[in-house]
Write a protein that binds this DNA or RNA. Structure first.
Lengths: 358, 358
DNA sequence: TTGAAAGCGCTAACAA
DNA sequence: TTGTTAGCGCTTTCAA
């Protein structure tokens, strides 16, 4: 009694009940305008009566059209990705696409495995986070001809690989630079970077490179780096701060890889009685909700996550729908959505006003 | 040139290249032990050479076995659900099941729509959050015979509907009660509840009912309820607190619907110079990471989310795998995983020690 | 406008 | 052990 195998209600059942051919039932359901009013009514009613639910897999198989739309994110623990997902959810499902979520945990190997798995679901397109993929991933994707959108990083830039296909994001190296160019005029001289997975995640790497490059150009020390291999959390933020202060006591400002780490560090400063931003400046990355509620409120880098999600959806829809006349004047991909430094209270006010960097 | 329609590599291609029948290729790939070493080698090599990726939809269609496993959560903004998802991800994908995520936004109608959509993907089972569903959802699910796991609430309890099938969670009304039974001995007399979606989400409703019932039994006021219709956030937590203090200035303790709201309220207390827990006690629900890092650290209710995810996966695997001899001594569903009050600094120490409630 | 036949890619069942 | 046939549920194509 492992579940009596319930006979699935098929379109043939619906057709039979309505007294029409299977094909007519199919048309009544999918292209109503091709069927006479009367038959359409009968079919719709039968379908309803039988609780008919069309089998997408069979439909896709027959029509050659895939409706699965895999989205690969590194993690769901950062609200950034949750919000991107929401941006995508806003339009894609109602266009008939089924979002499938995969989490790569910042690993190229996991990404590769997930891409393989998802390719088996006849994806109509695929959304990838980042622009750094394994060779096999690239080969698989190229060979399949499936549209790809890479998000959250900017491909084809001076220091990044070319885009696989569509791309929308911002430059992480420029974020690193911008932070230095923001903090230096505030009078900070020993500016540190602190992050997790700093070797694993190519986006962190580029952020650090931009950061260090800018420091070098200003003649400031660029060796103040705090690293952790643990996934990021408030606790790790505390540890990162402690480690940094121990190793480099001269540190007077820290740029964290995300707001969560920065918040943890801020809590640690409170515990230690360190005054922020007088003794130490703290800067985050992402501008998550907590940033503005912390005390003092966190200076951070805002990235347009929701917009990334929505734009990715638009790009995809335009690419897939291919409605040839509605041809929307789509911006040329890669699209740089830029970022913005949000000045709050964990850094001293700069001499110059904050500006938008793209 | 809307994407040259790349010829998909099928198992027939693989078979042809290997010089075997399609069926042999299929067996070499899926039941290797049924094929001679030599042919298996040839097939595997051909598959690799052609970058063959099996079409799950076609496979499922032919074999009658579905591999999609939809998971419906109310939101991804609470880390609780992210962690449950992780618990599920730990085992299900490697057993070949494809998790499909849907977010209901606490709406029964959205849930119904999602269930309908997902039923079209030949799900092998389906995971639902909560035990309150629309009539049509129940009918659809029942008719399909698909195994269902309801999580995060306890069905078949005195005040809850019977389970659809498998169930694993805890009693929200007992949480409400337990909180009162915890706070009262600490000397609090005007204990308020504050939450969002308090009318929409049946779990909130039951929590409030348990809460009010316990207050009544103790002869304490039970009308101190703060509500908001916005989705929960730190900002709403602040507002909720402000509203409560304005409407019921006598309030001396507040039980929030989640830790995020409680954190927001705590920030608001800081801003107002209110001393916690001396002037006001704050209690959260969920024990998210931030709870222990706040200052003062948040007293809250811990729920075993990761365990819920893992147990749900186990239950499902046992139900689906049906390996008849390995018949694991599965606990009888519904499974009550209980909860636990975590005493920290936002409430005064009670006369009696905290206890586990199930 | 409606219907019949064929087949999408794969595997269960049977035959060799 | 291997191959052949049929068919999963649906839609495309073509004919009526």
């Amino acid at each position: 009694m492992t579940g009596r195998k319930r006979q699935r209600v098929t379109i043939a059942d619906v057709a039979r009940l309505a007294g029409v051919a299977t094909m007519t039932a199919s048309r009544a359901l999918n292209r109503p305008e091709m069927v006479s009013d009367e038959l359409r009514q009968r079919v719709l009613q039968s379908a309803d009566e039988l609780n008919y639910i069309p089998d997408r897999a069979a439909g896709g198989l027959a029509s050659g059209v895939g409706l699965a739309l895999p989205v690969l994110v590194p993690t769901l623990h950062h609200s950034v990705y949750v919000q991107i997902l929401e941006g995508l959810q806003e339009r894609l499902p109602q266009a008939g696409y089924q979002l499938m979520l995969g989490s790569t945990e910042y690993s190229r190997e996991k990404e590769e495995t997930l891409v393989e798995v998802f390719m088996g679901w006849r994806p109509s397109a695929i959304v990838l986070s980042g622009i750094d993929h394994s060779e096999r991933t690239v080969r698989l994707l190229r060979a399949s001809g499936v549209p790809v959108v890479e998000i959250m990083d900017l491909a084809g830039d001076t220091d990044t690989p070319p885009p696989l296909d569509l791309n929308i994001g911002f430059s992480h190296s420029r974020v690193g630079e911008a932070v230095v160019r923001y903090l230096a005029p505030c009078g900070y001289r020993n500016i540190a970077y602190a992050g997790t997975l700093t070797t694993l995640d190519p986006r962190s790497v580029r952020r650090i490179q931009g950061f260090q490059g800018a420091l070098k150009r200003l003649g400031l020390p660029h060796h103040l780096i705090g690293r952790s291999d643990l996934p990021s959390s408030l606790a790790v933020g505390r540890d990162l701060l402690s480690g940094l202060l121990e190793e480099f006591p001269q540190t007077d400002a820290v740029f964290f890889a995300n707001d969560e780490l920065a918040a943890g560090a801020l809590f640690e400063c409170q515990r230690r009685g360190l005054r922020v931003p007088d003794d130490l400046a703290i800067m985050g990355f992402s501008d998550e909700e907590i940033a503005s509620h912390l005390y003092p409120a966190l200076t951070t880098v805002r990235i347009p996550r929701h917009e990334i999600g929505r734009l990715a959806a638009d790009l995809l829809l335009a690419r897939l729908g291919g409605s040839p006349n509605t041809q929307p004047p789509l911006k040329q991909s890669p699209i740089d959505v830029g970022f913005e430094i949000v000045q709050r209270q964990t850094t001293r006010a700069p001499d110059q006003h904050p500006q938008e960097y793209t």
